[in-house]
Design a protein around this nucleic acid. Structure first.
Length: 831
RNA sequence: GUCCGGGUGGCGGAAUAGGUAGACGCGCUAGCUUGAGGUGCUAGUGGCCGUUAAGGCUGUGGGGGUUCAAGUCCCCCCUCGGACACCA
């Protein structure tokens, strides 16, 4: 029984389950939430997108929170009369389906599509106002075909390429991972320790867009995206400014370049370090050091990322038996290989300045290398203290830089290097290219054919999609190479260029490719000639409001921005940023912790809905805290939400029974009307500002005011009561759509409340008859006066000074000053 | 270590062009309603002092400062959470 039992005394209550069934059927029949493509439709367009769901099972509390927030935003735009596009889809490729298929000896599609249906039914029950006709699934060939098409466009532009490299390998999932998918040395998905592996893999050249990804953030700041996300992306992109310096290496024809942010310390460089796993280290190693180097390299290769990144780990390395030459003073510097230098940042080699860089100092002290102070900072000698000095100071023992400040020295040395042709100003980014190959089955096949004579040959557009071969069960078991490799019939093809025997690429794409552009596909989800209709996308897009979790700060949200810029450059989009506004919902936790099976503190969404009804669950989530804050389910009460909804429902019912729609509100009780219009004014602003918890609080106040008017005021038949009750229905349609619909019907309306009913507040009714003015003496409140809102300041001052209570505190003290802020405050300063 | 957020009643949270701190809700207390329980309704509820009362004092992590006035602005510190983490 989902109803709250009523009895003779409490009057009408509603049965949540009956309402859910009734209105779900009505919405399904009447389709009030479709986006219109009619060019003659002049309503303003709103494009609201929730991050689509992964079909891992049924919806859980986290979905309930996120989709409730997106739904309020979408429903508000519907109420404002916009032409709203609020679509829904599924991110349906990915590992869990594959693992389930291996367990159950089935095909990943079975598990995937069954879960999608379960979730779709739950979404309908949850009452989200979406356009079901645009539904998409990324695992449909009609969708992933366009992943392949887009890949080929990237490939043509050199933005998709293959290279050998040390890649992140998850030994559990038996696949490589992008940098963004390695979280603190572990696989983002399964938590296994990631190891390094040398492999030849496909990459997207996201680094080409590093600067634009930074620059375009000025379209996203000022509260449009959370500062936190922008900061995380900025850090992830990691722009550093400094110089490239070319060092001659004895016995090598060409110099080796290093990047440094401290070129001013060049005279303090005492040794040179090459990343141990870089090809350069291999090349520079002198024969007599070969054995030591090989042994060291083998050590390094064994380390997991976790071990490698441990902060207190002592510095290790090996001398390569070679010398570099400092371009400014001819100093010979021993060349070492070490794993604290990263192969894929900068040039994979550094000049080491131990006096002014802590890592170099640690290394120097470990291997007894010289420390030379060239910036006098006033701090004690690094060689003695073990603490490098990185602050401001004055240059010394640095030739032409002597006496300069750090900042001036940086500018000067860059000039010197440039004059001599041994260096230049340079910028470096921490961002790495996006590794997109995956050695797993349930994803988009990479549409490339490898031909022994022609090399990498793209599949022709008219041959797309390259559909997945049918594999299932044990055939999908991870083996370190893609399961696709075993499908020999599928792999072995003729080369599209020369016709000779060739092989398909057997890797699939990272599923983040799918999610990098799905929000564009919604605008023309059934188009079969292009990934999306540019005109439709340019009309709807960019997404006005995007809702989803902040765990995607440096994953999906970064990739989607990158894709949008590339597609813009390809002439397919008019805009360069995909999401105008971003809201990150908080998590639903329980008893202070994330819900988890091991803690046994999970809360089942289905059971909560069963017990309290959808409306009460939605309202509870939205009222508990601001959308971006976490909600602790142990701290909230669905019962309270249920009680409030019943109160609201009774007000709507009683008003509906006592008067008819269309009643002129002007004749109604003026006091209640003022409250109603103030509510309209405030709730409008609060919803616009995404402050749903406060908007709900104001709705509660309005219900209380209407209740009072019915019970001890002008009575249920007063037109002002109807006006209040109708706005209650409209406001609740955002948060608790079922009871809002039913209440609207009780109010005598036919059709849905959900679209185009948002009222404007009447400015005349926003003016209060009287306001409370506080009278302060020495800034402490001593009296309160009821005054007209437009009271003359001089008159107010006189009233305040005349206050007996105020006089009691003034006594015989002299009045020094009177501050009047009519009509709210008067402060009398004595002394 | 660096970078972001936060610290307001017993609890979730309101209030920032500086101007009545604690809206709304939970919980709690009392009363009405009720066969009982719940629901519903009414009143109260930051702390301290005060015989109930009237009233007073105090109060937004701590300490300074600006101001007639500070939860809000400035400086210093403490603390909690998150992200990144050998990025040269």
């Amino acid at each position: 029984m989902t109803a709250v039992d009523g009895d003779q005394k409490t009057g009408d209550t509603y049965d949540a389950r009956a309402l859910q069934d009734k209105w779900q059927a009505r919405w399904a029949a009447e389709l009030p939430f479709q986006g219109s493509e009619d060019p003659g439709d002049t309503r303003p367009r709103s494009y609201v997108v929730d991050m689509f769901a992964y079909p891992s099972g049924d919806l859980h509390m986290g979905h309930a929170e996120a989709y409730a927030i997106g739904d309020v935003i979408g429903r508000y735009r519907f109420q404002r009369g916009d032409n709203v596009l609020h679509p829904i889809g599924w991110d349906s490729f990915g590992l869990p389906a594959e693992n389930a298929a291996i367990r159950n000896d089935s095909h990943p599609a079975e598990w995937t599509y069954a879960n999608i249906e379960t979730q779709a039914a739950s979404f309908r029950r949850y009452g989200i106002a979406v356009d079901w006709s645009r539904r998409l699934h990324t695992s449909d060939p009609e969708y992933y075909k366009w992943n392949q098409w887009l890949f080929l466009r990237f490939f043509e532009r050199g933005l998709a390429y293959r290279k050998d490299g040390q890649v992140n390998w998850c030994p559990q999932d038996q696949t490589v991972l992008a940098n963004e998918q390695v979280v603190q040395g572990r696989c983002e998905r399964c938590g296994a320790d990631v190891v390094r592996r040398g492999l030849n893999q496909w990459y997207f050249r996201i680094t080409d867009y590093a600067q634009r990804l930074l620059d375009d953030m000025d379209q996203l700041d000022d509260g449009r995206w959370p500062d936190e996300i922008l900061a995380m992306q900025r850090n992830w992109i990691g722009r550093s400014v400094g110089a490239d310096v070319h060092f001659a290496i004895e016995g090598r024809d060409s110099p080796v370049t290093v990047f440094t942010t401290r070129p001013d310390t060049l005279y303090g460089a005492t040794f040179f370090v090459v990343a141990a796993d870089a090809d350069l280290a291999e090349e520079l190693c002198a024969p007599e050091q070969r054995a030591a180097f090989d042994a060291y390299r083998a050590e390094v290769a064994k380390l997991s990322d976790i071990e490698r990144q441990a902060t207190e780990r002592p510095k290790t390395g090996v001398f390569l038996g070679r010398y570099a030459v400092n371009p400014v003073n001819g100093q010979r510097m021993p060349v070492w290989a070490a794993d604290y230098v990263l192969a894929d940042y900068g040039h994979g080699a550094i000049m080491a300045v131990p006096a002014h860089d802590q890592r170099d100092l640690d290394f120097a002290l470990a291997f007894d290398l010289p420390v030379k102070v060239v910036v006098e900072t006033g701090d004690p000698d690094p060689a003695e203290t073990g603490v490098a000095t990185a602050g401001e100071g004055t240059l010394r023992e640095s030739g032409p830089l002597d006496g300069l400040t750090k900042t001036d020295a940086i500018d000067r040395i860059i000039e010197v290097l440039a004059e001599r042709g041994t260096g230049d100003a340079a910028v470096n980014f921490r961002l790495r290219d996006w590794l997109l190959s995956r050695q797993r089955y349930w994803g988009t096949p990479i549409p490339i054919i490898h031909c022994p004579t022609c090399g990498e040959v793209p599949v022709r557009d008219d041959q797309l999609p390259v559909a997945l071969p049918e594999l299932k069960g044990a055939e999908l078991a991870p083996q370190g190479v893609s399961p696709l490799a075993a499908a020999t019939d599928w792999v072995e093809v003729d080369c599209p260029a020369c016709g000779g025997p060739a092989k398909r690429d057997t890797d699939t794409m990272d599923t983040f490719v799918d999610s990098s552009w799905y929000f564009l596909r919604y605008c023309s989800p059934h188009l079969d000639t292009a990934p999306f209709d540019s005109e439709a996308v340019n009309t709807w897009g960019p997404v006005d409001h995007y809702i989803g979790g902040k765990e995607h700060a440096t994953l999906h949200l970064l990739y989607a921005r990158f894709f949008t810029k590339v597609l813009h450059d390809l002439g397919m989009l008019s805009f360069t940023e995909p999401f105008r506004r971003l809201t990150n919902q908080g998590q639903v936790i329980n008893e202070g912790r994330a819900m988890s099976k091991s803690l046994g503190n999970g809360v089942d969404l289905g059971k909560e809905i069963e017990a309290y009804g959808v409306d009460a669950v939605r309202l509870t989530m939205l009222f508990a805290s601001p959308p971006e804050e976490d909600v602790d389910w142990a701290d909230v009460s669905c019962t309270a939400a249920q009680k409030f909804l019943n109160r609201a429902f009774r007000v709507m019912s009683e008003a509906g029974a006592a008067s008819a729609p269309g009643t002129d509100a002007a004749a109604g009780d003026a006091g209640l009307r003022r409250i109603t219009h103030r509510s309209i004014d405030q709730i409008t602003a609060l919803v616009e500002a995404r402050r749903f918890n406060v908007a709900i609080a104001r709705t509660m106040e309005l219900v209380t005011a209407a209740r009072r008017a019915i019970d001890s005021g002008p009575g249920a038949a007063d037109p002002a009561v109807r006006e209040a009750a109708e706005f209650v229905a409209v406001a609740l349609s955002l948060f608790a759509p079922y009871v809002a619909e039913e209440g609207w019907e009780r109010l005598g309306h036919t059709g849905s409340v959900a679209v185009g009913n948002w009222p404007e507040a009447d400015p005349d009714l926003l003016v209060q008859e009287s306001v409370t003015c506080v009278v302060q003496v020495q800034s402490k409140v001593r009296d309160k006066l009821s005054v007209a809102p437009d009271i003359d300041p001089a008159e107010l001052e006189q009233l305040a000074l005349a206050s007996e209570k105020a006089q009691g505190f003034i006594g015989d003290k002299q009045i020094r000053k009177v501050i009047v802020r009519a009509p709210k405050l008067v402060n009398i300063v004595v002394g």
